[in-house]
Amino acid sequence: MEPILQIKNLTHTYGIGTPFQRSAVEDMSFEVYGGEFLGIIGHTGSGKSTLIQHLNGLLKPTGGQILLNGKDIWAEPKKIRDVRFRVGLVFQYPEYQLFEETVYKDIAFGPTNQGKTGEELDRCVRESARLVGIRDDQLDKSPFELSGGQKRRVALAGVLAMEPEVLILDEPTAGLDPAGRENLMANIRDYHRNKNKTIILVSHSMDEIAQNVDRILVLKSARVLMSGAPAEVFARAEELITAGLDVPQVTRIAMALKARGMDIDPAVYTVEALEQEILALRKGGAPC
């Protein structure tokens, strides 16, 4: 697979030359592949937000490079806006960025800035609204009449309408209730499956990451702590816990069973997988 984004020795230091000098991102290197669903996890202050704002050129690195399809995004600083259309970023609580009179106009803001007009614009707006589950009759409403969860969907559609190659979501489900969370993640999974576009999901919730992504990047104190498929990362659960990070509850149950002498893979992270492991033990006779 070809990497769509290459992050090379990325460093971002705030307040260089002042007593408050502090690196939010330090010497990070990793790749994002076309069509993959990548999860980024880390504490507040681990450098997550600073990192993702580099990927679409909102922040300029103080060291290192970001390559989009092999080209340095800062090669032509004047064209940085194009990068923002190709790498779409949905901020935390994006509903607070809505400003237009109608849902339709608000979703159209990004694609209009992109230069889309007429039928193409209309198609982008309607299609992205559909992707996030906004009904046609809601398009003419004021975004401020909608419920919190729907507002968030509109804001998400506003970024999808730019048809970015990479979509970055910063805590998309923060503050939603379990049903709302599950619905929104289902929409995002559908989008990923049908469009085959790259998604980067930033989250605090290990469970949410575990259930959705192909690969996990764990950040700690401005650096990459580990990366790999969920099973690989959760196999190092002890390390995660030492680093003060959460592991999925299922992994913790599996670890507790292993500690009790059961022959169980501690890296399982879905309820179904653990159920199967336990049932296999029963069929295999006495486990100890």
Partner: peptide
Amino acid sequence: RLHKDGLPVPLDALTVEACADAITAALR
């Protein structure tokens, strides 16, 4: 789920430790 699969586990072990204890007991 395990209960439905026919494993004799209680349903009210909420914490990770209690849950692991219940499953261990049922399997043994």
